[in-house]
């Protein structure tokens, strides 16, 4: 008697799970790539090179990311800005910027090393290619366009989630000022990759007042 009872008990679990799976109530797998799992806020996906709101590139070609990279997958070369037509604020800009995504281990040390928050990570992780060359991302792929959109490698892919590139990994450090005096007090971009949501840059007078000198 006891045996039958135990058997029925076990079959009930099987049946419940079967029905739960068919109805979707107890699904543990997902029909990827049609349905994608929501990623944690700080997911380390593919990199993006950011711009300032005025359109200037944030990257100054300092190579600190390349120095920090444990996989040695970043190659950067700096160049002097043309004074009349600068690419980035200051003297130097990132002339060459390449990441070999086949080598990258997505540790995020480059993001941490960057003094200007030029490089941040997005939620996009699908980067398979059919040849090795396409695994090397250059400035063409990495740099966001002046409107703040990041070029997707496969924009026509019906399965690609274009929104992944618009989601930052949320890791932002409050350091560098916005770059131009005209943007003092202007709120930084929100909701775009890497920039996060932070308060506007205070003026020097404001800072003096706060420190009690003003």
């Amino acid at each position: 008697m006891g045996i039958v009872k135990d058997l029925l008990k076990g079959l009930a679990v099987t049946g419940r799970t079967m029905i739960g799976t068919i109805t979707g109530r107890e699904l543990v797998t997902r029909p990827y790539p049609h349905v994608k799992r929501e990623k944690p806020q700080r997911f380390h996906g593919r990199h993006v090179l950011n711009r300032y709101p005025d359109g200037m590139e944030k990257c100054i070609g300092c190579e600190l990311c390349a120095g920090a990279c444990p996989a040695e997958c970043i190659y950067v070369r700096g160049k002097e800005n043309d004074i009349d037509n600068p690419v980035s604020p200051g003297e130097r800009f990132g002339y060459v910027y390449e990441i070999n995504m086949l080598r990258c281990i997505f540790c995020g040390l480059c993001v941490e090393a960057c003094p200007t928050e030029a490089i941040t990570m997005t939620h996009l992780f699908e980067m398979s290619t059919t040849n090795r060359e396409d695994g090397i991302y250059t400035k063409d792929e990495l740099l966001m366009s002046p409107d703040g959109k990041v070029p997707h490698m496969f924009p026509d892919d019906p399965l690609a989630d274009l929104g992944e590139l618009d989601t930052a990994d949320g890791w932002v450090r409050a350091t560098a000022p916005g770059g131009r005096a005209a943007y003092q007090g202007v709120r930084m971009w929100a909701g775009t990759p890497g920039v996060g949501d932070w308060s506007p840059e205070p003026s020097q007078e404001e800072r003096d007042r706060r420190s009690g000198d003003g």
């Binding site: 190579e63 390349a66 070369r77």
Partner: peptide
């Protein structure tokens, strides 16, 4: 040598 490399390169 201006902006040609960083010492760790």
């Amino acid at each position: 040598y201006r902006f040609r490399a960083r010492p760790w390169d």
